[in-house]
Amino acid sequence: MIQLTINGQPQQFESPINVTQLVDHLALHGKRIAIERNGEIIPRSQFSEQLLIHGDQLEVVVAVGGG
């Protein structure tokens, strides 16, 4: 069991997952998003390689209306 903090909310997963699996889990596949892990950008090209581990802090962002 691992715990990740995603956009400030803790979530448990049965086993370590990679970023592509996380994106699918969050139903964000194909959406225009960007992800930061522990303060560092994860390039989209590395989503399938990067394995998330217990305690990781993730920020998943989109573009919204703003001035």
Binding site: G8, L26, A27, R32, I33, A34, V60, V64, G67
Partner: peptide
């Protein structure tokens, strides 16, 4: 045109329209 960057909704309303 300016846009803001914000946390996405997690798990809710997956089909929400996207500004882009």
């Amino acid at each position: 045109i300016t846009v803001a960057i914000r946390r996405t909704n997690i798990g809710q309303n997956a089909n929400e329209p996207n500004l882009l």
